[in-house]
Simulated assay, not measured.
Amino acid sequence: MAERAVVRRHLRRIAGVVPGTRIGRIRWPRPLPSSPVPWHYWWQAHLLDCMIDAQLRSPERRRAHAIGALVRGVRLHNAGSWLNRYYDDIAWLGLAVQRAGILAGRSGPSALAAITNRLHDGWTEGGGGGIWWRRDDDFKNAPANGPAAILLARDGQSAFAAAIADWMAETLIDPDSGLVRDGVRVASDGSIRAVEPYIYTYCQGVHLGACVELAERDGHHRFTDRAMAIVDAMTHRLADSRGVLPGSGGGDGGLFAGITARYLADAALRMPELAGAATRIVTAGATAVWNGRAEVRGGPVFSAEWGRPAMHPGRGVPETDLSVQLSGWMLLEAAARLQRAG
């Protein structure tokens, strides 16, 4: 039901007419035709990831064609390139294309090569290491480094992935809460000028995801220990008393909690030590978001804040954003994976 609602409302051909393409409309209901339409590259990556989740759950030829069309649509809409200024954007798309495999079509290998090469270029020793958030900037953050580490580990580049994950653990973990802070500002001499202390939900998820990948591939106990520590910190210092993760409004923030649910489900399925705690958070969120849904034309609408009832979509309402609806869909796919696994 979540998939049908998002696909019916948001998935369209580019400009409504370009054959062999799909792209995610960023809002529903649509704004007035005169309103500017921003390009949210990384939302499309998570739309692709959700469609792959659905294909793994219940394979369909129609959806398989739509996955390939969405990959083509992203490149076409992005002026024929897989890349932009933001290292986090391209890492997210790389993860989705990597998961898509042959469904991404002949362009998949070229996309992954371009993205992984650019991620290598983003690493410098300034700030002790790490990948920049975007080119020509002074900021290094968890949302760029976490997905990059996951992608590179899955690509067989474990040494580089481990260096990124170690930098995150050494630089971004808050010593008081054990949670991952947003990032650091790097001075021109390479020293850390300031730490951005904000605790965003998806920073925890990508740190966990990198640790889970490396615990399997690298085998060093530090990654298992870090994965256990971050799930414990999320349980006691981030989730509410029911185990529900907080939301971050609409816009980009709409994706944050859903991303973390994805990597919690991965952790539950791949690390027996985390199965109970990670499953509880995912299940609590899925129960809350489903019980709090709004039923409108075309199916459910999910809340931007899983712990409260959803508002009906409209101008200025976060539930209007594709990001928020993808997050709810992503959460339910994560819960379904855990249920299928028992």
Score class of each variant (00 low, 15 high):
170 E>M: 02
154 R>A: 13
110 S>D: 15
121 D>S: 12
205 G>H: 10
159 A>D: 15
199 I>V: 15
105 G>C: 11
118 R>H: 05
109 P>Y: 11
119 L>Y: 03
85 R>C: 01
168 M>K: 03
92 W>N: 12
168 M>S: 07
177 S>R: 01
139 F>Q: 03
125 E>S: 14
170 E>H: 12
87 Y>N: 11
148 A>W: 12
196 E>D: 15
123 W>Y: 14
114 A>G: 12
164 I>A: 04
147 P>V: 05
158 S>D: 15
126 G>T: 08
153 A>Q: 11
128 G>F: 04
85 R>D: 15
174 D>H: 00
137 D>V: 00
194 A>N: 07
131 I>P: 12
142 A>H: 08
95 L>V: 04
147 P>I: 07
179 L>K: 11
186 V>K: 00
178 G>W: 00
124 T>Q: 01
151 L>F: 08
170 E>D: 15
117 N>D: 15
160 F>G: 07
117 N>R: 15
154 R>D: 13
203 C>M: 02
97 V>I: 12
90 I>V: 15
112 L>V: 06
107 S>M: 14
136 D>M: 04
173 I>P: 02
121 D>W: 06
136 D>W: 07
103 L>C: 09
178 G>A: 03
131 I>L: 15
177 S>M: 04
199 I>R: 09
99 R>M: 02
167 W>C: 07
167 W>K: 01
97 V>W: 01
178 G>S: 06
144 A>L: 05
173 I>Y: 01
179 L>T: 11
152 L>K: 10
134 R>E: 05
90 I>F: 05
177 S>P: 06
85 R>V: 02
87 Y>K: 00
95 L>Q: 10
136 D>F: 09
132 W>Q: 10
106 R>C: 04
166 D>Y: 07
132 W>D: 14
193 R>T: 01
136 D>G: 03
110 S>H: 14
122 G>W: 07
190 G>D: 10
144 A>K: 03
202 Y>R: 06
133 W>Y: 14
148 A>T: 11
122 G>L: 05
109 P>G: 11
91 A>K: 04
119 L>V: 02
151 L>S: 10
118 R>F: 05
129 G>P: 11
182 D>M: 07
138 D>I: 00
152 L>Y: 11
205 G>F: 14
199 I>G: 00
183 G>V: 02
175 P>R: 09
189 D>K: 03
188 S>R: 14
91 A>Q: 07
181 R>D: 00
203 C>L: 02
117 N>M: 09
98 Q>R: 14
128 G>P: 10
198 Y>H: 10
188 S>P: 01
188 S>E: 12
173 I>A: 07
159 A>V: 14
87 Y>D: 06
116 T>C: 13
120 H>I: 08
133 W>P: 01
121 D>P: 02
105 G>H: 10
176 D>K: 08
115 I>V: 15
201 T>K: 03
200 Y>W: 15
134 R>P: 00
208 L>T: 08
110 S>Q: 13
131 I>G: 09
205 G>P: 13
171 T>H: 02
153 A>I: 10
183 G>D: 07
143 P>W: 08
176 D>I: 10
204 Q>A: 06
150 I>Q: 02
143 P>E: 08
183 G>R: 06
